[in-house]
Design a protein around this nucleic acid. Structure first.
Lengths: 344, 344
DNA sequence: GTGAAAGCGCTAACAT
DNA sequence: ATGTTAGCGCTTTCAC
């Protein structure tokens, strides 16, 4: 049988109220009794009952974490790392996290996660792009929400995102520093806020450095920013016969596709042009040349989301807040070249 | 405010006891009152409070799912799919699942997952190989445990595993049916039960078909069964100048490494020898030749684990049970060849 | 077949 | 500074 507050009170020779007060860090208890109680609790291996606490406090102590199936099962463990971050911080803050996976497409008539219906959570974290209909439906439940890595077009939310713009600027400005002037940008799904911000960063960096924007060097017609589409984008770049000496890719997957294509079609070019991706995935260091990239600390995204969410739950920050996680430019072999050569 | 049982009772003109009885599917309530109560509950959007129920019933309604960090963050979403299965079945059985990730190395002095210490779960699922010290420590808590994809050397546990032996036999016998006689086996980490069972299946299939075992065709010295070690194993196979016309790999990762190596060293051989892997990972259909493999239904592993665990919790199956999930041989391009050619 | 009431372990208001 | 006590929402025993 589990130890209860009663037994602790008995052992410490105080009332159960005193034990409760001590455990909830109430200051009006004398340091002496505090110690006695704590010692008794430790000795009895006492952990307060979550259910009893929840029942009286109207707080479950649980957080919900929502992910689409696509995102959860992605080969690259991007979202799983974010989840790991939430787990770590939830532990610190004494919360539990329920992870739930929903279908990637959401219809108006689809139900909400069970923990929402049953009100078995105090707040909810949603990572990655989800259907707007889902968010609208969810909002009615008046549960604190924090979004990670996605900014919906409509509605006001607490959000944790990475610094896509600054990350892109640092990549493109590094190219410029190396001497590159003809820098291409390849992307997929430009409707995704993160991707469009990376394009914005690319443009800003060029502008800031007084380099004329050349729209024919910007390829964003691909639906999904994956390796196959990176390959296709590279084929296109090779075909347009422009001077291109560097390519900034909206993510590492596309950059890897680009490298695949050059290996197949013009291996000599790999020593001549420079490439930077975005994300810092494992494959970056296995491919040859190893891929320079803009690194995102995924754990931090999760950690900050929990901090923000718990603040919202506790009512500290009623207004919605946007937290931006900084990125870091990681230089590897794919940026050894200085702009003297180009794709033609 | 959340609807309570009181309000439902009021609306249905019955006592709260009756509502409770109806909700717990007690049969001594008349069908009429049953209907009235259910209708009232539906109308009021009533969901029983988990905390109140847990408090009185001494059951949290939660399950714990433990994974090492290595397993959780693996590029191939093997364990995440298993988790998905547990989520699905937990939903059916009205349980919630806490996913927790622990360090891959476990020291005696390391603590147990918080949900164990706080007794905030009714049962626990552990997927993949974990430290024995961890299991020993956990057993003391007398929580029902189900292991997935791992059989500890010591101790008695409820276990859900895939049919490694039958899967391996079907692969090797398919080779034999094609006309292959010189079939190599490559593996890593033979100390892992799953891997050693696959070796056993390989040996059994040969024996059954009266093919002499040739130990020089069995390569198991590699630590981890990954792509790089598959490449190394292939290099070794190429060097030993034996007649080898088919290779059974302990998993798809090593098989992919084998294909990588052949592509680099002797591309012509890819059309001549046959290869079968194990797992059915996504990359199998992207590589050329597409890889034949023994498919494992990961979702099922999770589903069956929850079924078994819930039975254990409810006290239906006191004895520990071993559930074996069948595998399926998936034939693709890598098994088009008939044993006429070999690595030399 | 249904209801009254005790009590699960805890928090918090109030009393001392 | 510490104790008494009501009550959170539910299940379950016992009465009717």
């Amino acid at each position: 049988m589990k130890t209860t507050i009663k037994e602790v009170a008995l052992k410490a020779n105080v009332s159960i109220a005193t034990v409760s007060l001590v455990l909830n860090k109430n200051t009006r208890i004398s340091p002496q009794t505090r110690e006695t109680v704590l010692k008794a609790a430790r000795k009895l291996n006492y952990y307060p009952s979550r259910s009893a606490r929840a029942l009286v406090s109207k707080q479950t102590g649980n957080l919900g974490f929502v992910l689409t199936k696509d995102h959860f099962l992605r080969t690259e463990p991007f979202y799983t790392k974010i989840f790991l971050g939430t787990e770590i911080e939830a532990n610190n803050k004494d919360y539990y996290v329920f992870l739930t996976v929903m279908n990637s497409v959401y219809n108006e008539s689809d139900s909400l996660p069970r923990f929402v219906l049953e009100k078995n959570i105090d707040g909810i974290i949603i990572a990655g792009k989800v259907a707007d209909a889902f968010l609208v439906k969810l909002k009615k439940y008046n549960i604190p929400i924090v979004l990670i890595d996605y900014i919906p077009k409509k509605g006001d939310y607490s959000i944790v995102i990475m610094d896509n713009i600054q990350g892109s600027i640092s990549a493109v400005e590094y190219f410029i520093k190396l001497g590159h002037k003809n820098i291409a940008f390849i992307a997929g799904d430009i409707s995704h806020p993160s991707i469009s911000e990376r394009l914005r960063g690319y443009k800003l960096a060029l502008k800031r450095n007084k380099i004329m924007l050349n729209n024919s060097l910007i390829l964003t017609k691909y639906s999904s920013p994956n390796r196959t589409n990176g390959y296709k984008a590279a084929e296109h770049l090779l075909s347009i016969s422009k001077k291109i000496s560097a390519v900034f890719c909206c993510n590492d997957a596309m950059a890897l596709g680009l490298i695949d294509c050059l290996k197949d079609k013009k291996p000599s070019l790999l020593k001549k042009i420079s490439i930077i991706g975005f994300d810092d995935i494992e494959e970056d260091t296995r491919v040859s040349p190893t891929l320079s990239t803009v690194k995102v600390n995924k754990i931090d995204l999760g950690v900050e989301a929990v901090k923000l969410l718990v603040n919202n739950i506790k009512g500290k920050n009623i207004t919605n807040k946007k937290i931006i996680i900084p990125t870091e430019l990681i230089l590897r072999e794919s940026t050894r070249n200085n702009g003297k050569y180009n794709l033609n």
